[in-house]
Design a protein around this nucleic acid. Structure first.
Lengths: 252, 252
DNA sequence: CGTGCATTTGACCACCTTCAATAAAGGTGG
DNA sequence: CCACCTTTATTGAAGGTGGTCAAATGCACG
């Protein structure tokens, strides 16, 4: 690996070690049951899903799946944070999304995974075989409907992200991102209103917003100087002027 | 409208005039029946959809729906080309996609449309009330499954587009776009292999790729000088070196 | 053949990137 | 618990890709 490309390859995933598997999830008591696609299933129905799902725990910065691999499984996140990304041949990376408890990935794939997934924090996953899950849709129509509904919402969000990537300036991108993360992180950690939690690195943020680490860092400094945010030591951030931030995020 | 923003607003849609509506589509003979979501429906089932759908014909550059409007309908395209777009408050525009016969829009919406849709060419549409269509999913499970499948594919494609918007250079963006359009236009018009059809303006291409018209135009010139393409007078383009184009599109 | 719009081309500029150095944070072993 | 090292983040200076502004050319249509 040449030093020129080092910045892009960011090899901060050590491999597929450090993961533990436990059999046949007890979906009935799953911490994510009521915030995930499984929320539509009653006590009888949840058993059907329980029979095909496995629990997996992974440490920080582990690879869950790699772009191009045969897409055998769909993963539901129970605890932690996962990043989904795609790469160009020379190592340029685009992060497609940061996923939190209740969200899933591995659906939008043909034969192989169309993206890579890596843990950002220690993560508990629910692993379901894709084909088996898809077959259950006829037996559990409400689940299929729910998955469609979630996918619709997801598609809508990616449209917002396309607007961000194609048309927003660096400062607008960062403000939009912080607002999104505030909404998401309020669901996860119970933190103060006007605080937010950023478990990912500057490099991850940069690759999510189509910027470089340096630009992200500079924008953080600018927002701090303008008293719109204050850095409370990683990974905590205070929002001092939410109104101003929303205006900037929307494009003035 | 100030001259400063004129380039952004590109008010090339005259309004909602010039459209004709005909009642209760004869879906059985629909030209898009076998290339759209309806392809999964048999002779009995198609009648159910037929009962809730209307045919609409619109001239070039007409508004079909506007971001924020109450999302009453889902539209299936039977003939023509439609652009889907989102705007920032100051008029910066991002085109989310160009849609061709067999494709639909209006699904990924909550209460209001999350994007605007306008015709690029003369267009025949099939208009279905969203709520009624969604209700049919329980009666026609295969349709719901098909819509999910299409939406999954769509989501996967938007991920590719995020990689393009966030990480590709202007030249790579244009080559990727031309390849996409070659695939799509081969489905629509029966034109020579290694030819492609671009019904949209430079301004549309720019707003789709997160660039300006000038940059798009310059890249067209560069690709022409490098003998990768040749402009056969709008809207036809010859691809002279497909291999080279694919390499550039993938990021070298 | 002239008008109006889209596209191309040119000159200059700005935002973001690149390259580089420094500072801060985190992790490991003594 | 602190010294040492690695990794990550910040800051600075210089450069480039693509944007802005402006003019010219091409093209369709009356």
């Amino acid at each position: 690996m040449t030093s020129m490309n080092e910045r892009h390859f960011t090899p901060n995933c050590v491999g597929d070690g450090y993961s533990s598997v436990s059999n046949a999830g007890s979906c009935e008591q799953c911490v994510a049951r009521h915030i995930s696609m499984c929320s539509v299933l009653n006590e009888n129905e949840i058993g059907i899903i329980s029979s095909i799902s496995k629990n997996i725990t992974k440490q920080t910065k582990q690879i869950i799946c790699t772009e191009g691999d045969t897409a055998k499984y769909l993963y539901n996140i129970k605890k932690g944070c996962v990043r989904i990304s795609k790469m160009l041949v020379d190592g340029r990376r685009q992060i497609i999304g940061f996923l939190f408890p209740g969200e899933f990935f591995g659906l939008a794939c043909t034969n192989g995974y169309s993206y890579s997934a890596e843990t950002i924090t220690e993560t508990d996953l629910c692993q379901m075989p894709r084909t088996q899950l898809f077959q259950k849709f006829s037996e559990l129509p409400s689940l299929g409907q729910k998955v469609l509904e979630i996918t619709r919402t997801e598609l809508q969000f990616t449209h917002d992200q396309m607007l961000l990537l194609g048309r927003k300036r660096a400062k607008e991108k960062l403000c939009s991102f912080l607002l999104t993360m505030q909404n998401k992180s309020s669901l996860v950690k119970n933190i103060e209103k006007n605080q937010l939690f950023l478990p990912m690195s500057r490099s991850d943020i940069a690759d999510y917003l189509g910027l470089t680490i340096e630009t992200v860092s500079r924008q953080f400094t600018i927002l701090t100087k303008e008293k719109i945010i204050s850095l409370e030591g990683n990974p905590l951030i205070n929002i001092l002027d939410l109104g101003r931030m929303e205006i900037i995020a929307s494009g003035e």
